[in-house]
Design a protein around this nucleic acid. Structure first.
Lengths: 218, 218, 218, 218
DNA sequence: TATGAATGAGAATTCATTCAT
DNA sequence: AATGAATGAATTCTCATTCAT
């Protein structure tokens, strides 16, 4: 073809790489195939990226950057916790279709073991949400919006766990099937997912053990 | 006698395979290396398994079977929901050390995409817990132990999501690092994890929106 | 073929490698071609040798070992210097046909630049002859066999230079052509080469400058 | 003006090529790297040279031409043989530093085997010195300056062999190490090399076998 | 005319799979 | 039946060469 590699061609290469790596993983994907699908020669790929692994990391990084920017947008708000929670759940539902591959990539790296870079990615990616969520919970406690007998960091952790699994459920084959096993046709009912998950979360954040105890029964 | 030896050998082969596949994945692991580590020849491996993928599935199956039997043991109980929840959380903590590789394998298959067998595994593995959890929640509702304004299947789903993420956090590199980013040193405090997670779950299951509304304001 | 790689097959592989490397050099030779010519698969080659360079070194080493053993045989003697010199010249003539490739390999490594291992080979290979020649000259001086106004090490060096060039002249394309340019048809007259080279050497070793001076004229 | 620039550029390209080929050989050197180092595009390189090999030959030719002109300068003289020999030895010492790369290139081609052009180069390069040396020796014999029982062509050959090896010893890694193994620290003593080599040569040329025989006994 | 990005054939290396022993 | 050496297709990566700009 011998046409100057435009910005968009390069972007297409990354997208193709992401699609392949998301499906087959670092080892399973084939560099030549990716190049061919992207409409370029292997040569260019290797002009831009030292080797397969570096290219994989570029794909990963792009995926994570996109996810991060989406996340950033969504977490930006001064609303109360439950309002934010609802916004985030809906964001997960909305973006999961469009950004599915990026979430698959995120899922890929999250299932890698024994690679040095794994913990680096974790530290980088999770730090932002961990901080945002934790601070928000701390402020809500101070404001008396939610109960004060909880460990903010751990509750932030549980909250993110629920969102993460929801993401995976919408994007990754296994988790989608799993969600369907649990939720049946309700999994396709976005509104129900939102309302039930909110229900789950809001009580968790709102009631203290003492209240539970003195009313009790379970 | 000879058969016994073979069975042992075969079991060792599977364990070795699990260890390798858990670390490197289907494509990253090396069949010859596995055979050597297991102390057998590749020849026997191929006598028992058609090809690499089939052997991988055998490893996967064994992993999942073990996890299933552990799970089965733990979910067997007539206790009330929170008692069971606590037992399960503690089970996750206890078994995560011993059965780490199996959970890694579970995580592997869960991050696979575009493979027909993925949804089959999901259906098989998740069905049991989905049914058990859902039934239990339904009974708890009927017994008036927990609130009655929830969708049992979805709540079972959320509950399992929390447990699944806890498992991964204890066993898989990325999730461990992620948990540490969120929980800091508290992640090493098993009791705190138990109590906070229980706190999170129990309110979720115990209080109804109406109660929240009439008391409140979040 | 799937036939156990015998000692001789391995030896054949080395010989094939030597032949290829002698002709085309480390970079120019093709591992797949060598394997095919040797009648084995690339796989075995890589079972025995880490990579192309290591295989090249194995070929080099074999070549040098053979040359060394031949040299060792020839330098073993208690004869006087000129007798030994003659024996060596004749050895060069005799063995050059049979061991031509090994000498080509020697010539290859001798023309390599900027590789760490080059000086290691030089030190290893040349040390033996350097010591033998030098000691022999020292002893000849002490015995009064040859003149005593010379630096034994340097004369050993010059002597070996003449023999080395003679070797190359018999075995390496360029040097053969060069020898023919100088010597014309006399290059094919082995006896003449022997007698003239001996003539050249014997005077060099026998007469002192003082003798030259007092007779003088040049 | 523009042509001037091009000629300079072209010369620089050749010099860069020589440096690279001298270090890495025809197969080891990289055309793109050479062009980049020379500050031109590969395009021009291929405008001037059909392909890599042709460019290599251009580099080789330039190297040999320079060596030839140097040699020509040095061999031009009416002095007696030993005076000329001394001049040549000193020339080798002086020029080896400055013209090291060209000698390395000479060494490269001299170690090539199985290529048709090799013998052409040999014929061309060696003819001049062979003729000059031989004629000079013949004249010296006729003039009674040196002994008359020698084959002029062979003696010219031996003489050139010594000079050639001296050149290599000063310029090529392997031969330098080899020279050091033989000569130890004396190899850095230029004057000693000159005087000892002259000693070696002068006797070789001056004394006849009959003289050796009737005085002697080695 | 000069450039150097792009090409893609070719070379090194790996490893799933076979099968002679 | 078990072994594991041998196979060679497949994959990664390089670099001589081309040609649109």
């Amino acid at each position: 073809m011998l046409k100057k590699l435009t910005e968009e061609k390069l972007s297409e290469l990354l997208e193709t790489g992401i699609a392949e790596f998301a499906e087959k993983g670092l080892d399973g994907a084939n560099v030549n195939t990716i190049a061919k699908k992207a409409g370029i020669s292997v040569g260019v790929l290797y002009k831009y990226y030292e080797n397969k692994e570096e290219f994989f990391h570029a794909c990963l990084r792009k995926s994570l950057d996109i996810l991060k920017s989406v996340l950033n947008e969504v977490t930006q708000s001064n609303d109360k916790l439950l309002v934010r929670a609802e916004r985030m759940i809906r964001a997960v539902q909305d973006y999961s279709k469009e950004y599915g591959v990026y979430i698959k990539m995120y899922n890929r790296i999250a299932s890698e073991n024994g690679r040095k870079y794994v913990s680096m990615y974790a530290a980088e990616i999770e730090s932002m949400t961990a901080r945002v969520y934790t601070e928000f919970i701390e402020r809500a406690i101070k404001d008396g919006d939610i109960r004060n007998d909880i460990n903010p960091r751990l509750f932030a952790f549980f909250f993110d766990n629920l969102l993460t699994m929801l993401q995976f459920s919408y994007c990754c084959d296994y988790y989608t099937e799993r969600a369907r096993v649990y939720c049946k046709e309700d999994f396709d009912n976005d509104e129900m997912i939102v309302s039930e998950l909110l229900k789950f979360i809001e009580s968790a954040f709102t009631f203290s053990r003492s209240e539970i105890v003195h009313r009790d029964q379970m």
